[in-house]
Design a binder for these strands. Structure first.
Lengths: 313, 313
DNA sequence: CGGTCGATTGAGGTAACTCAAGTGCGGTGG
DNA sequence: CCACCGCACTTGAGTTACCTCAATCGACCG
């Protein structure tokens, strides 16, 4: 196994002229990346590999709406997102789709195909994309020689697993408002990580897709965004989102009832200082509401009073 | 790296006399397993390895209620369940726990620790357990030599990922009844796989834990089980569950409204033949209800009339 | 400039939650 | 042995968060 260059064109890959000047960050419009670049993309500890420069991975471009792989299709490739936005979905027996993730720069896709040798999900480009192809079998073989590569593989798969666990936790335990809030925060963080503004960005997905991802209807997503906008947590204009109070969003559990929002008084005589709408909303946070799930052992201790203004539910 | 025997006692492991005659199926009460046995346990294609007999993995026993690992604890081990039942949980900022899985024979645990080098979840024994220890670093090293082992690692991690994706789909899209039904079916299948009865078994977890796992309250779980019992899909006596109509459970979307259950008529003059309660319930199935999430492309086609008795919602 | 698609908003319904009894079982101590 | 207690479970009644259905509006596109 001394092939240092990974070619193997995917059948059914989109026809894109292999010209120069691609989107993304490829130096000089190259269509290949070496291992070091791949590792950087994945945020994996730097890999100083002897002759890693010779080891090249091919890029492929997809246009908005194109499918990268479909459910049941034979698996042979992993993909890393170099630029662009996608969604991965599950399709149930009635054709309804369930969004599983919104991969973007630095994410790996296709891992679900390893087990059965067939992809168990479908990936669709939400914008024009530049992906790096990783032929799995060859990659695994290389991993045996280059330990860092193997670490990368295990690390990325484990990371993905943890992400999904967090998702399950969210779907199982949080209110609609908390889900939307965390979704926005997560997006904001990702944009920051990619060097974009974390305060103002465009959603690449529809309300419907967000709802599917979060286990909500599109109406609920829309209403929740409007509510956040109303209390000054964010600004919303179609797909443009402005994050105004990241901390409040991060910890939000439940918004105060709508009737209490417009006119201040709300329930009880709380709230001495801090008068802005945003500050008011920001307080509607860490309530010790033992959700649907309560730990049998660890007793739920009360939240600090300063944080529990709207907390009594 | 020519160590063919994997020792390394876990600090904090439970004190269990390393005597013979253990629970589970270990021949002659051994406390070690070779690679072949591990692969069989994981349902991975048989591994015919040259001198795999020399490669031994240690077992450890845990008693009911003991913790295998906790959140934040430094990661170094993977675990395979040889016998017994466990739960893995996430714990949020208020001490509430979210059940992620109920590992049993053949399942791997601890994979979430690879990425950050710390376990991100907690594993607790719901019954006395016998686990096989797999020191991750050594295992990975061995995987480089024995390809089958490496395949096993990737395969198991991918399988786990697919399982979690299915979980997300379930939490995001299904009704309480459908979730409980699928949970029972999944358990039933696992028991069958392990050689136990798939028709009659004991739940090892509380209603609270089931609810947490399914994103429901314990009351909803209890009520749903009672409802299933009432229409003859299952029998319930505390933790003893009898599966009476597996197919109905598998496809169940929504039960007919309770008022329609006691006295037959329900909505409309459907249901010509097939008069048992179970058969009636079994029909309450594949309704083309476009759930919260509908595919934009694939039009939802009507379900076959024979299956859609209670379907009109 | 219509046509389509996505987003917003309202009104009403309901599935699932919350709170609250009440039951049964298993363990412990008198 | 039985009384007592704690815990898991069941069941009911009332509440509500989210869904469903529907109308409207704006943006984009051929």
């Amino acid at each position: 196994m001394q092939s240092t260059q990974i070619t193997e064109f995917r059948p059914g890959a989109p026809a894109v002229p292999p010209s120069g000047l691609e989107a993304g960050r490829q130096r000089q419009g190259r269509l290949w990346s070496n291992l070091k670049e791949v590792c950087e993309l994945l945020h994996i500890p730097p890999v100083n590999l002897a002759h890693s420069e010779e080891l090249l991975f091919q890029h492929v471009q997809f246009k908005t709406g194109q499918r990268i792989h479909t459910i049941g299709q034979p698996f042979d490739m992993l993909y890393i997102v170099n630029s662009g936005f996608l969604k991965t979905v599950l399709i149930d027996e009635f054709g309804n789709e369930q969004v599983l993730s919104f991969p973007m720069k630095g994410d790996m896709m296709g891992v679900d195909g390893i087990h059965t040798r067939h992809y168990s999900s479908e990936a669709v480009a939400l914008s024009d994309c530049d992906l790096i192809l990783l032929p799995f079998r060859k990659l695994a073989a290389l991993g045996r020689v280059h330990i860092e590569l193997e670490n990368m593989m295990y690390g990325v798969m484990s990371r993905e697993l943890v992400r999904e666990q967090a998702m399950i936790g969210m779907l199982g335990a949080l209110s609609a408002e908390a889900r939307v809030a965390r979704f926005l925060v997560a997006l904001s963080d990702r944009f920051a990580q990619m060097g974009y503004s974390s305060k103002l960005f465009n959603l690449r997905m529809t309300r419907h897709e967000i709802g599917s991802y979060l286990g909500l209807t599109l109406e609920t997503v829309s209403r929740t965004l409007s509510a956040f906008n109303e209390v000054g947590l964010i600004s919303v204009d179609q797909r443009t989102i402005g994050i105004k109070d990241p901390d409040a969003l991060k910890n939000l559990r439940r918004l105060p009832p709508s009737r209490a929002r417009g006119r201040q008084p709300g329930a009880g005589r709380a709230k001495p200082a801090a008068a802005t709408a945003a500050a008011g909303a920001a307080a509607a946070l860490v309530a010790p509401i033992a959700g649907p799930v309560t730990a049998p052992a660890a007793p739920v201790q009360a939240a600090p009073a300063s944080q529990a203004l709207y907390a009594a539910v």
